[in-house]
Design a protein around this nucleic acid. Structure first.
Length: 431
RNA sequence: GGAGGGGUUCCCGAGUGGCCAAAGGGAUCAGACUGUAAAUCUGACGCGAAAGCUUCGGUGGUUCGAAUCCACCCCCCUCCA
């Protein structure tokens, strides 16, 4: 049934560590198994860092197993210290509860709830922790943990040993809560495998120990690699910040563009991590690209596949429509309807009132969110990197926003597509 | 409670009375080169179109002048009790 799954995960580079390596493939082959991965609410949306575990849950489900997505309504109240340099600020229970709802909906889109016996579940660890009193926790759970062992965990070591850091008892207790989750799910749902990022190893093994002590059960753990970029910069961030899964935070267009911009040195690895394409297919694509002149096709495939997974066919269509218009088409070819569609598709846009324009172009573009400061716009103007409907502006135009947005310059009498640099676009629409 | 160390611009990290809007590195932005890639090179990088304005945990003070000195307060770390 699925030692093939393990082989596939390995071929994709998705296996970082395995707890119970000898027994796990056989265990998975022996029947439908239940596995889980936790997602803590640290914001009202997950970001692409959570995509790898989400898709891995789906890979297991496709292989005939039953996935549980756990939303950390309880653990989110505490904060995971694993490999975090500093103690984190606590959010109020109300805020966390709101985030839990959002995250629950989000994770639900990545697993199938209508798959017969291996239909997915979503659970919230608040359900079995909020009713537990302190003494029960300390006597029944805490007694199974050795502080000596806990302080040895790599994940909290720097917080304990490093000068200038430190860790509160609250955060230190986090791993006990997560261990309790695993033990609880092992008891409730016969869950025998936990997935997580490589930073979760310490928490996962703590859970494995607790499940054995509490239920006498052997359970397994699997960690996924940290996604890195070849150039050493952090994966998942761009100039405009984190890439979120929520379309209201990161539009499908921006999302698509993010993947399209993947470096050659990363893209084939990303295809293995973030898509369901066969490893053989990806290898074939890599070979084909190597023999091709100029631009490889891999980035396009990656952007298409991942955008479809996260935003569906419609989101993908919108993203591709915008991309075609901005990077491949001729602006003059666009109809008024096309412009309206671009706005609907999620191209950054705002209304423009010619009567109340600010005193300078820098201010206008900063207000529209195209740049963080006027200096950046100034710099771009100086190098001819600001274009209105395809016409470059110069530094002299800065004091004359009315001229820049003159009616004569508008397309279809009201649209101004402003480009700053190579990739930043903003659509202004006059009434 | 006691002793010591520390809080600098997004991050790391120099700076101990004027030459400091504050070294250096990273990240980021723009340009050149390209393939909406990487590497490399160039410029920018507190805010402001500019004049100028506001920063170095907080509040006061000393001084012609303070990130730098003093007082008090807040927060963090280490060791001791």
């Amino acid at each position: 049934m699925s030692s093939a799954l393990i082989a596939d995960l390995r071929a994709r580079g998705l296996l970082f560590q395995l707890a119970g390596e000898e027994a796990l493939p056989g265990w998975l082959d022996g029947g439908m198994r239940t596995l889980y991965c936790g997602f803590d609410p640290t914001a009202d949306s997950l970001h692409i860092g959570s995509l790898v575990p989400l898709l891995t849950l789906q890979r297991f489900q496709r292989a005939g197993h039953r996935p549980i997505a756990l939303v950390g309504g309880a653990t989110g109240l505490i904060g995971d210290p694993s490999f975090k340099a500093q103690e984190r600020q606590l959010n109020t229970p109300e805020v966390i509860a709101g985030w839990v709802d959002r995250i629950r909906d989000q994770v639900s889109r990545f697993i199938d709830f209508d798959a017969g016996p291996h239909s997915a579940l979503v659970v919230n660890n608040l359900d079995w922790t909020q009713g537990m009193d302190v003494l029960t926790f300390l006597r029944d759970i805490g007694k199974h943990f050795s502080v000596n062992a806990m302080v040895q965990k790599e994940s909290v070591r720097q917080r304990i040993e490093r000068e200038g850091a430190g860790i509160s008892y609250t955060e230190f207790s986090y791993m006990i809560l997560q261990a309790l989750d695993f033990a609880e799910l092992a008891g409730r749902h016969d869950c025998t495998l936990q997935l997580g990022g490589s930073d979760q190893w310490g928490n996962i093994t703590a859970g494995i120990d607790l499940a054995r002590r509490l239920h006498g059960k052997q359970v397994f753990g699997l960690t996924l690699p940290l996604i890195t970029k070849a150039d050493g910069t952090k994966f998942g961030k761009t100039e405009s910040g984190t890439i979120w899964l929520d379309p209201a935070r990161t539009s499908p267009y921006a999302f698509y563009q993010f993947w399209l911009g993947a470096a050659d040195a990363d893209v084939y690895r990303f295809l293995r991590f973030f898509t369901f394409l066969d490893v053989a297919e990806i290898e074939a694509l890599e070979r084909a690209d190597a023999g091709r002149q100029g631009r490889p096709e891999a980035q396009g495939v990656l952007a298409r596949e991942v955008t479809r997974l996260v935003h569906g066919d419609e989101g993908l269509a919108a993203a591709e429509r915008i991309t075609r218009c901005l990077f491949e088409g001729d602006l003059a070819m666009l109809s008024a309807e096309d412009f309206a569609q671009l706005r609907l598709d999620g191209l950054p846009a705002s209304a423009l009132d010619r009567a109340t324009l600010p005193g300078s172009l820098t201010q206008a573009l900063v207000e529209a969110g195209m740049a963080k400061s006027g200096k950046q716009v100034k710099d771009a103007l100086g190098s001819g990197a600001v274009l209105v409907n395809g016409q470059p502006l110069s530094w002299e135009d800065n004091a004359d926003p009315a001229g820049c947005f003159a009616a004569a310059r508008a397309l279809h009498g009201r649209f101004y597509l402003v480009r700053l640099g190579k990739k930043k676009y903003h659509l202004f629409e006059a009434p």
